[in-house]
């Protein structure tokens, strides 16, 4: 989503088809450890497809780069990004899918990284707020946030900005009503909403929308 790319497109996974890494999960590593569980679980017919609870090899595509790591199925995408890959733009705040600080894009759609398992994001195109600064110049949304002083402590800001980016890709002509419905899933405690609203309209203008 840095400038040279087209609206709504995602970084290509060079030469790797989706099928070839089967959702990025290696099936062989964590075969069912039946002994750990009571016998009420009958998984006989499907045992080959059950992985964990121990670490499982997972491939994550983050900002166009491939990362292979071993995580337990219970590890969230947020914790995998932050603690395993050192990608800390998505922040942990509520960790319960209400504040939006952890927002990332999954196949172009804004999601809460705290409420997705890393293993479930395997093979999908993950984009974090860092992409807003990776182009030859900062993304229009990032620049609009700076121009409108749409941040204070900055902790909610990367997640908010990437949500705004996805929002504007979807709604190039934002309205207050759309902002209310779609961007109320990001909280800011410092109270920078006035600046963020202005930044949304400024960025929309630069992205060619009518309502900027």
């Amino acid at each position: 989503m840095s400038r040279p790319q087209k609206r709504g497109t995602t970084t290509r996974r060079h030469g790797v088809s989706r099928r070839s890494f089967i959702r990025g999960v290696s099936l062989g590593t964590g075969a069912l450890q039946a002994g750990l569980f009571p016998l009420t679980l009958d998984a006989a017919q499907s045992a080959a497809k059950v992985v964990g609870p121990g670490p499982v090899e997972v491939t994550l595509w983050v900002n166009g780069k491939q990362h292979t790591l071993k995580v337990e199925p219970r590890v969230t995408l947020l914790d995998a990004l932050r603690d395993r890959l050192g990608i800390v733009g998505p922040k942990r705040s509520c960790d319960r899918g209400t504040c939006g600080s952890c927002t990332v894009l999954l196949d172009g759609k804004a999601v809460y990284a705290c409420s997705i398992l890393a293993i479930d994001a395997a093979g999908k195109n993950i984009q974090t707020p860092e992409i807003l600064g990776e182009g030859s110049e900062p993304d229009v949304v990032a620049r609009a946030f700076v121009n409108q002083d749409a941040m204070q402590c900055g902790y909610c800001t990367p997640g908010f900005a990437i949500a705004v980016k996805a929002f504007l890709e979807k709604y190039p002509n934002p309205t207050d009503e759309l902002i209310k419905e779609e961007l109320s899933g990001n909280l800011c405690r410092c109270g920078t909403y006035v600046g963020i609203r202005r930044a949304i309209y400024e960025a929309a203008k630069h992205m060619g929308g009518r309502n900027g």
Binding site: V88, A142, F145, T157, A161
Partner: peptide, 18 residues
């Protein structure tokens, strides 16, 4: 414009948890 604005918005500002 605040001098650390771009660093913050692009997720590059470091907090203790980072």
């Amino acid at each position: 414009n605040r001098v650390d604005g771009l660093v913050k918005v692009t997720g590059r500002a470091t907090y203790s948890s980072d």
